[in-house]
């Protein structure tokens, strides 16, 4: 009986969301009086995996099979299921990412487990009762869900758990093979295309986001958004009307039918704050709204606001960030 955490790596580095997942898993292990093991997927280095000790992981399993570099649903599912069997894992924790959700849902059938996605807090364990809190109704509500199966799979929402940093702790790294065959790679991607990220920060992983709406009046004005984002090391995002009008790519659309973000800081520029947009951002820690209409509904959901013209305010903010150093 142990806790297994699934750690996603990219270019040798452990993703930020996976540091949160590892921290979540080690705290669950503590609650259950056991240890947490990680299974790493993607391209990892042994040194970076050993550092998962800082998040409370004791042992890391890693399969160096080169075809596991890109996400392959069949192969990843088999690999993680094999690790879960080896560890006799009672709880499996992964990120609520496109990889985590795809693998977690298949695993829940294969391992006959209860699955909760979009989880935002550590579980409450009361006798045999295991309860997690998850986001529901597109961020407009929270649900406490009891996982009734013997085995549990938990997908943790990004930015909802603080990553632990126990300096100096290291994990052992163990080579692990799930004996994958060609058939497990039948659904391997033919091609992987990465998009250029404005400012180099990936939106779903970002802890700061600068977002623009129709008030930006056209794609030609986006340098104002990008300049502030660059100065803050933030990702850029947009509202639905903006991506519908092709001013910005779809993958930047934040809202009920776009992506949901929960950064520490969300700066909304020229976005009125339709309820569908709020659903995608309202779990952000601090929300700043800049809009020239003082009646814009977004101000009701904001922590800080500036009633003013984005074309005048944004350059001043960028300047102020640069002066801050």
């Amino acid at each position: 009986m142990s806790v297994l955490v699934v750690v996603e790596c990219d270019n040798g580095e452990v993703k930020k969301s996976s540091l949160e997942v590892a921290s979540y898993g080690s705290q669950v292990a503590q609650l259950l009086g056991t240890t947490a093991t990680a299974i790493a997927v993607g391209v990892a280095t042994e040194a970076n995996l050993a550092q998962l000790g800082e998040q409370g992981i004791s042992n890391v399993l890693y399969d160096a099979e080169p075809r596991l570099k890109d996400f392959v649903n069949g192969a990843y599912t088999k690999l993680i299921a094999a690790a879960a069997e080896k560890e006799q894992a009672q709880v499996i924790v992964l990120a609520n990412s496109n990889i985590g959700a795809a693998v977690g849902s298949r695993l829940s059938i294969r391992l006959k487990a209860s699955l909760a996605t979009n989880v935002v807090e550590l579980p409450k364990v009361d006798g045999g009762k295991f309860t997690v809190r998850r986001g529901a109704y597109s961020g407009k509500a929270l649900a406490d869900v009891v996982l009734t199966g013997d085995r549990k799979i938990i997908a943790v929402k990004k930015n909802s758990i603080e990553a632990l940093h126990n300096a100096g702790q290291t994990a052992t790294v163990e080579q692990f093979s799930a004996q994958l065959s060609d058939a497990d790679f039948a659904d391997a991607p033919k091609q992987v295309v990465m998009q250029e990220q404005a400012g180099g920060v990936l939106l779903p992983e970002a802890d700061k986001v600068v977002s623009g709406g129709r008030g930006m009046k056209g794609p030609e004005h986006w340098s104002l958004i990008e300049d502030l984002a660059k100065a803050l090391h933030a990702a850029t995002a947009c509202s639905k009307p903006v991506s519908d009008a092709d001013w910005r790519p779809h993958h930047e659309h934040v809202g009920q039918t776009g992506i949901t973000v929960s950064p520490n800081l969300y700066i909304a520029c020229g976005i009125s704050g339709a309820i569908q947009h709020l659903a995608g951002v309202n779990s952000s820690k601090v929300i700043v709204v800049i809009n020239k209409d003082p009646e814009a509904p977004f101000f009701k959901a904001a922590d800080y606001g500036i009633v003013g013209d984005v074309f005048d305010v944004l350059p001043k903010l960028t300047q102020a960030v640069k002066e801050l150093g």
Partner: peptide, 23 residues
């Protein structure tokens, strides 16, 4: 049958109110 049960729903905590800064 189901493998999970909703024990309770809750609404997210309300914001304290916006602090406005002059443009």
């Amino acid at each position: 049958g189901a493998r999970t049960e909703v024990a309770e729903y809750a609404l997210p905590p309300k914001k304290q109110g916006v602090k406005l800064i002059p443009a």
